[in-house]
Each structure stands twice: as C-alpha cells, then as structure tokens.
C-alpha cells in the first residue's frame, strides 16, 4: 500500500474549548477519556472533496516517482459521509480533477469508521490495483460545542494505492448490531450526535470478541484498530495487546478522522518500519451503524 494523507488546516485548541464549556474539573476529566488537546479542522474553504484531492494529488506524485502505471488502475473508491455534492459522489470529481483515465470504475461508499476496511475489501476483490480515498469533515456537522463529539473528531483525508496482488487475504468479516443506527447519526446538516456509552458497549462486546477470535486463530503481527477515542484505544489495548501483537496508536496526535484513521496510522507505522513478506496485518474499523469490519492481510 502506498498512502498519502492530509488534515484540515485549522488548528483548534481542544483543551481550551473543553474547559471553557465544562469548567476545569469536568473538562480535564473529559479530556482524560477523549485524548487529544489539539485537533485539525477543515477551514471555511476546505471540504471533503478538496481534502481528498490534496491527498490524491500527493499520492499521484509519489506513484509517478515509483513508475506505477496509472492506466492499470481498475477502480477509484471514495469513502465519505460528507460528499461535497449530494449527487454525484466525490469519486467522479476525483477522477476528473486529477485526470485519471476514462475507464476507471468509480465507486462511492457512504460509511464511517468502517469505511477504509469496507473499501479494502472491495478493492481486494478486483483483479487490478485501485485507489481508495477516505475523506471526512465532521466538524462541519456540529453547531457549536458538542461534548461527545468536539473533543474527538478531526477532519482529514487519505489516498491509498492498493494492489491486490501484493497481499493475501486470510480473513474478512462484517458485524452489525441491529437497531443502533441512531447511536451515531446526523439527520440534518448540523445535527451530528453520538451516544458514547452505547458505542463503548458495542466495542466492549462484539468488537473485542471479534478481534480476539481473529488474533487467536491467525496471530497477526499488527492490529491496526480504529482510533475512536483514548478511552476506546486504551480499553482495546488492555484487552488485546500482548508481547506478540503490536497495537499502534496515534489518537493523541491526530484524533479520530473517521474513515481515515486506519490509513493514516498504517502509513505512520510502515514509513518507520517496512513490512516484511509474510507479515500479518489486521485492520479493524468500527463505529457508525453500529458496525464492525475486519480484514486480515498477509504481505506476499
């Protein structure tokens, strides 16, 4: 996988905002659970498309330097719950604005924190390489301060070149907890809400159980888990990490960028240390739905 990513350009002092709204004591208690003290948000000129285009353009430069044949691309998969237009999805504009070839297969997925894994599963089912673009601007879905949301979510985008021939799939799955679509939802443009305890209940139940089974059966070297909040990351590490399974995290530095958390984390880790053949990597995304998508890949 070759990845480029970007965050919104507006730096927000989350600690200051939280304490202004909740007071010193409650504010600090909340920050212990949420994590980041600063987050990057999209400015008034940025949206999911512009952030995605920036990430994609940077990726194309990188691919060009590596002599990747862009005519071999089979699909461009865009993941966003905040597309710039209601019709069509961002994928068509990515293809036009970055002048990709005319026969690329555009796919738009409306998915949240599972989105990167969902897109990987689709890209992996194709014969040729694909580009996956995740892009989200949750900060534009909130009117003012929302204690469950403002301290967690950052705006950002990623662009990933994925060649299915470089990986072997060992496992993939989806889990949905029915009748919980209201747990994280947005019924109008500024109405994003999240029931934190219900999400945590799902993580403590189905998500940890799913991952535990996968780790036991396949013993991956890395578990790349969605960076929901510090509370969620700490909880999962306490239940799942051991001396044989690395559980990277970046929630404190980057925040929760929804569908971009996994590609950003993967890029940070693999830039520092290239994966060797036969390395097993588990991607696990969970949240909106409530749903959990998992995919275990082995480097060829």
């Amino acid at each position: 996988m070759i990845i480029e990513w970007t965050l919104g350009s507006k730096k927000v002092d989350i600690k200051k905002l939280v304490i202004e709204n909740l007071g010193e004591s409650k504010g600090n208690q909340l920050l212990e659970k949420t994590g980041p003290k600063f987050l990057q948000h999209a400015n008034e000129n940025e949206d999911s498309l512009s952030l995605g285009v920036l990430a994609l353009k940077n990726l194309l430069v990188k691919l060009s330097k590596k002599n990747v044949d862009l005519n071999s691309l089979e699909s461009l998969i865009s993941v966003s719950e905040s597309p710039k237009k209601q019709i069509p999805g961002n994928s068509f504009d990515y293809i036009s604005l970055c002048n990709l070839h005319d026969h690329i297969f555009p796919i738009d997925i409306n998915a949240g924190c599972t989105g990167f894994v969902d897109a990987l599963r689709i890209a992996n089912s194709l014969k040729k390489p694909s580009i996956i673009i995740t892009s989200e601007t949750y900060s534009k879905r909130i009117d003012g301060f929302a204690r469950n949301i403002t301290p967690i979510f950052a705006d950002g985008a990623s662009a990933t070149y994925f060649n299915p021939n470089q990986w072997t799939t060992l496992y993939e799955s989806s889990t949905i907890r029915k009748s919980t679509s209201a747990a994280i939802s947005c019924v109008n443009s500024l109405g994003l809400t999240m029931n934190g305890p219900e999400v945590v209940d799902f993580v403590m139940g189905e998500v940890v159980t799913d991952i535990e089974k996968i780790i036991k059966k396949f013993q991956p070297s890395y578990v790349f888990a969605h960076q929901g909040s510090k509370f969620v990351v700490d909880f999962m590490k306490s239940k799942l990490a051991n001396d044989k399974v690395l559980f990277p995290e970046n929630i404190m530095e980057v925040g929760n960028t929804v569908s971009s958390t996994l590609p950003i984390l993967f890029d940070q880790v693999t830039k520092a240390s290239k994966l060797k053949p036969k390395t097993r990597v588990l991607f696990t995304g969970f949240g909106v739905g409530l749903s959990h998508s998992a995919m275990l890949l082995e480097v060829n």
Binding site: D201, F202, G205
Partner: peptide
C-alpha cells in the same frame, strides 16, 4: 465476562 454482556451502554 463483560464482553458477553449487551445493553449496559443504554
């Protein structure tokens, strides 16, 4: 034991 318990969040 907590992993098998659903609904505490609500």
């Amino acid at each position: 034991g907590i992993k098998n318990v659903k609904g505490l969040g609500n």
